[in-house]
């Protein structure tokens, strides 16, 4: 009798235990066990995530990520949570995220529906548009001005995909070159290998501002599309995503986003003290008012 009572009590305790404190799963469990969180960062994604002149990783996305890290620290009650920085490239970010090397990717990664089949994204932290930069002297204003010309975009980006589609749909007969990275795409335009460089406008502003003759270039008013940027995390990890999303929403609703945005887009930034001078776009202001993690460009119109 006594023995069966004990057994019953033990059985009850076993059932009750997980219900008391919610069991940690996925990334949160891993962070708690290791006491470290690993942030994947870019090396030259100005002003989102890049090395400054003292080889420190800084940027708009990094500031937001550190707020997420603070939220995780509070959530797990781990005051000495260590942050490890791990550089990633566009080719390594997926494998490193999948195999658990990095927990967050803080940079300028476009959130779209196709990519969501592989990874998750938190609340959008920037909205960019696909535009082109060209030499002022060539007087190219709209897409129709590029008819039959050679243009360049960066290989493997949503931008080159889009310009290819538009080229086919509207029969513009453009020759589209693929550059290895943004700097090289700009170089092709700078050296007249291509008439225009098609890319996210924010990156174009950064490249033009840092070029030898910033006043020689003009960025088109015509926008080909809208692209939301998101901080990347592992897919199917609702517990971690909830903490990260909460931290992002908190940043937006508390108004903390204002000084962070100003610091990176409306003030001189390292390493060369260039001011991008880019007020918050209407599309992004909407996201700040109504935070969303949608990967559908239509949600940002």
């Amino acid at each position: 009798m006594k023995r069966s009572l004990i057994a019953a009590a033990m059985g009850l305790a076993l059932v009750a235990a997980p219900a008391g404190a919610e069991e940690l799963t996925g990334t949160l469990k891993k962070i708690k066990e290791l006491g470290t969180i690993t942030i994947g960062h870019r090396d030259s994604s100005i002003p989102f995530s890049y090395y400054d002149d003292r080889q420190q990783v800084i940027g708009y996305a990094m500031d937001l990520c550190y707020r997420i890290v603070d939220a995780v620290r509070d959530e797990l009650k781990l005051p000495d949570l260590k942050v490890v920085l791990n550089p990633v490239t566009s080719a390594t970010r997926i494998p490193l995220m999948a195999n658990g090397t990095i927990d967050l990717e803080c940079g300028s990664t476009t959130n779209n529906l196709e990519r969501q089949k592989q990874v998750g994204f938190t609340i959008t932290h920037f909205v960019t548009a696909n535009r082109f930069v060209s030499k002022k002297a060539n007087n190219l204003k709209t897409l129709d001005d590029l008819k039959g010309k050679t243009i360049v975009s960066t290989s493997g980006t949503a931008n080159i995909k889009q310009i290819n589609q538009i080229n086919a749909e509207r029969n513009l007969g453009m020759t589209i070159l693929a550059a290895k990275d943004h700097a090289e795409g700009f170089l092709m335009m700078e050296t007249d290998r291509a008439a225009a460089f098609v890319m996210d406008d924010i990156l174009l502003y950064g490249l033009a501002a840092n070029s030898k003759a910033p006043n020689d270039y003009v960025i088109s008013a015509d926008a080909l599309s809208v692209e939301p940027y998101g901080i990347m995390l592992r897919r199917d990890d609702p517990q971690f995503k909830a903490v990260v999303d909460k931290a992002m929403i908190n940043t937006y609703t508390s108004g903390a986003i204002e000084p962070i945005y100003k610091k990176w887009f409306l003030a001189p930034i390292p390493p060369r003290g260039v001011n991008l001078n880019l007020p918050m776009s209407e599309a992004f202001a909407k996201v700040v008012a109504n935070p969303t993690d949608s990967g559908d460009p239509a949600a940002y119109k």
Partner: peptide, 18 residues
């Protein structure tokens, strides 16, 4: 230098589709 050969195609495939 922008030649879309096999490695470049594999790279862009992974960037589009992840």
């Amino acid at each position: 230098i922008g030649l879309m050969e096999l490695t470049a195609r594999a790279r862009s495939m992974q960037e589009f589709s992840f």
